[in-house]
Design a protein around this nucleic acid. Sequence first.
DNA 1: TTGCAATATACTATTGACGGAATATTCTGC
DNA 2: GCAGAATATTCCGTCAATAGTATATTGCAA
Lengths: 127, 127
Amino acid sequence: MDFIDVYKCLCDKQRLRILNLLKNGPLCVCHLIEVLDADQVKVSKQLKYMKALGMVESTREANWMIYRLPEPPNSLVVENLKCLQDCADEHLCFSKDLKKLSQILSRIDNQNLNCPEIVTNSHEFCC
Amino acid sequence: MDFIDVYKCLCDKQRLRILNLLKNGPLCVCHLIEVLDADQVKVSKQLKYMKALGMVESTREANWMIYRLPEPPNSLVVENLKCLQDCADEHLCFSKDLKKLSQILSRIDNQNLNCPEIVTNSHEFCC
DNA sequence: TTGCAATATACTATTGACGGAATATTCTGC
DNA sequence: GCAGAATATTCCGTCAATAGTATATTGCAA
């Protein structure tokens, strides 16, 4: 993965928000859509673009596609996502997204809704 | 200056190389062109684009336009330029550029060629 | 004022990314 | 096999960024 590819991925707000959400663990598309409150087709296209850049990976689990950051983590990506978190005060949406995600994930834990097997305990949120 | 604007600037190799060169102090366009071995018009357009994003500033000194990173430095930019330096082994061009620049600047110091008054002693190179 | 050096702009064509709408694919459960 | 859920793809129009070529602007020096 190339510097330029990383920055090409980071230079769009929705992609930044997606990376921010994936930072704590894999997620299926439906969660991303719900947190971002975004159009399914748009998110799917962004994910395809990000995958082409090598910024995310995906695996299928039954009906669901699980997206994750590649292992081992790219240090440039990690550093920039940290910056996002540090600047949370100026850019509220990123922390709001994480809060919303944690609510969704706990709802799943509690009620066992129709959702894929995600290792939800890898999601530790700062807020 | 916005996160997205920063990344929009970073996602092009020539712009990255320009920022890398400006990191140690202001430079006139002719030095950038010489180090990058690039077309004058292209560099001028890139600088205009970067200026519109708020990533560089410029002042005229006689015939020369001096470009610099804005003060105070943007921490996101600083961090990413540091990463560039840390990954010098994988991305040789950035350290090569700095080496080439230091040669040009010392040539000016020694021979007093037709070049603008740049505070060359603010340029401390790692290599 | 003329000429030259340094830099910027205008014009045009091309490419890449994005949005919207419709449709296709893949898997599951019946 | 069929219906439905989750996700992806295709088609098309638009806009932003890039490149190439030509030309304009600015300032200095003679």
